[in-house]
């Protein structure tokens, strides 16, 4: 029983992390059609802001979510209104835009990382927060990881409700399905796309904040998280928020089981599942 709980809740925690990392990217690609290679850099910035506020001002990392999120949202929104909107209108075709925006996000990745290195250096940073054990039916877990799971789940649920229930959320979904028709129906497409990009960045920032509670952070870590995010997004189905969540959970569960059997195989297992799934179901679990 304890072993089962270890694996199951451990899988949930890992899955929550993966989902959180991926949801923002899914939104950005699914709606705004930007495969954002700089996604991990936003995660890194969120993590560093939280670390800095905790270390220098003693601000509770959970409270800093309320600062980090909006701040990064604004950056993402402005970036899309300026850079990506211009790129979109000047691109000859949607495919050209996807290629162009890919390069632009590469550029962003370099820029953000370099700025972060100038600001925070390249050394490893870490802090101890809620690093105590919590017992669930005899199985023990780190309190900070459980907290991260709760927040990740909460954020994803709120986000899902926002997309499903609000007017703005519906506009976003309409834009994702058919931007031109949505535009004709009176949706301000430029604003909606920028909003999506900003929200994607916001999710990345929050993910970074939560991750910094459990993992040491470096200014050069962004690309590693981008890669995880891409895998989860593809696994779940491009552009499907629920899909990303499910993709993350599956990856987390598999990871947890493999870690139990043979930790050295965990990454092999991820990529194996990923490749197998793509072959069997090329559009991901919940893809169209």
């Amino acid at each position: 029983m304890v072993e089962f709980l270890n694996i199951f809740i451990g899988g949930l925690i890992l899955g929550g992390i993966y989902a959180l990392i991926a949801v923002g990217l899914s939104l950005q690609y699914g709606v705004a059609r930007v495969l954002n290679i700089s996604h991990g850099e936003f995660i890194m910035v969120g993590a560093f802001l939280t670390w800095a506020m905790y270390t220098f001002w003693g601000l509770n990392p959970l409270a800093s979510l309320a600062i980090v999120g909006p701040a990064i949202f604004v950056v993402g929104f402005v970036l899309h209104r300026t850079l990506f909107t211009r790129l979109r209108t000047s691109s000859a075709s949607p495919a050209a835009y996807e290629g162009g925006s890919l390069i632009a996000t590469f550029g962003l990745m370099f820029i953000i990382q370099n700025l972060a290195i100038i600001t925070w250096g390249t050394d490893i940073e870490a802090y101890s927060f809620l690093n105590t054990g919590v017992s669930i039916f005899g199985a023990r877990f780190a309190a900070n990881r459980l907290t991260m799971l709760l927040f990740a789940a909460g954020i994803c649920v709120v986000f899902y409700l926002f997309l499903a229930r609000t007017r703005l959320g519906k506009a976003i979904r309409a834009a994702a399905q058919d931007p031109e028709t949505a535009g004709m129906m009176g949706v301000n497409i430029k604003r909606v796309l920028a909003l999506c990009f900003g929200l994607g960045a916001l999710m990345a920032g929050l993910a970074g904040s939560l991750l910094s509670m459990c993992y040491p952070i470096r200014t050069t870590m962004g690309l590693e998280y981008t890669i995880i995010a891409i895998i989860v997004v593809v696994l779940g189905g491009m552009g499907s928020i629920v899909g990303s969540f499910i993709g993350g959970l599956i990856l987390g569960m598999v990871g947890s089981i493999v870690l139990y059997i043979d930790p050295s195989l965990s990454l092999v297992a991820y990529y194996f599942i990923f490749i197998l799934l793509l072959l069997v179901r090329p559009t991901g679990i919940l893809g169209k």
Partner: peptide, 16 residues
């Protein structure tokens, strides 16, 4: 003796 890959995100099974 257990090995972990670079970028491992959970080592609780090993500690356990």
């Amino acid at each position: 003796t257990k090995s972990v890959p670079l970028g491992v995100m959970d080592v609780s099974s090993i500690i356990n």
